[in-house]
């Protein structure tokens, strides 16, 4: 299980670093080439992690990377290679951003309730997964349903974070949502 867990964490880092680097490469390269360059650069960095301290630092900052966020990053990378998926409405992005920021604030002790603690198990964790799965079904959102399922699988297999909510979402969601909102505002 340790080997599988390590492989999973590397794949998540590859997807997220690849996405971040491809966005930077996108300023110079056309679609497709930028994604390929971003993924290749992320792969090289991870392979050279023992020689490149910055990689270990990034891993220390972002690990454990959320499988859900990694899946969305991978899907966004796929756009460069022709993978099509329906753009999400701005209202949905705004709602998710507001809810996630409230959740983060509660995690920082701004409110007395601690929703993060509910992600370790029991009815609240199960209910959250079912609610998100139901929403994905209503919206016919294959990617969201797949992200929830992936988060549940790795959580129950003790891979990555021991908290279901960490596997569903992570802080990297905030810049990703802001980028999404920026795209909608520019009509893209």
């Amino acid at each position: 299980m340790t080997a599988l867990s390590t492989l999973y964490e590397y794949l998540c880092l590859l997807a997220v670093f690849g996405w971040l680097l491809s966005r930077l490469a996108g300023r110079l390269l056309p679609g497709g080439a930028a994604e390929a360059a971003g993924l290749a650069a992320a792969g090289v960095l991870l392979a050279l992690q023992w020689a490149v301290p910055q990689v270990a630092l990034l891993a220390a900052i972002f690990a454990p990377v959320s499988g859900g966020v990694a899946l969305f990053a991978a899907a966004d990378l796929g756009r460069g290679f022709g993978l099509r998926h329906r753009p999400r409405p701005a209202a949905e992005l705004l709602t998710v951003l507001a809810a996630y920021l409230l959740y983060l604030a509660a995690g920082l002790g701004v409110f007395a309730v601690d929703p993060h603690a509910a992600g370790y198990g029991g009815v609240p964790a199960a209910a959250t997964a079912v609610a998100l799965g139901g929403y994905a079904l209503v919206r016919r959102d294959t990617l969201l349903a797949a992200a929830v399922l992936l988060a549940q699988l790795v959580w129950l297999a003790d891979i990555g974070s021991e908290n279901l909510f960490d596997n569903l979402a992570g802080v990297l969601l905030v810049p990703a949502l802001l980028v999404g909102l920026w795209r909608r505002a520019r009509g893209r």
């Binding site: 964790a125 199960a126 079912v130 349903a145 699988l153 959580w155 129950l156």
Partner: peptide, 24 residues
């Protein structure tokens, strides 16, 4: 639609499994 139905059903099954494997 078929895929998303399948995935949502799998999510529901995994939620039940989660209640068994990670109870309060």
């Amino acid at each position: 639609r078929g895929v998303v139905r399948l995935l949502a059903a799998a999510v529901a099954v995994m939620a039940l499994l989660g209640l068994a494997l990670r109870p309060a």
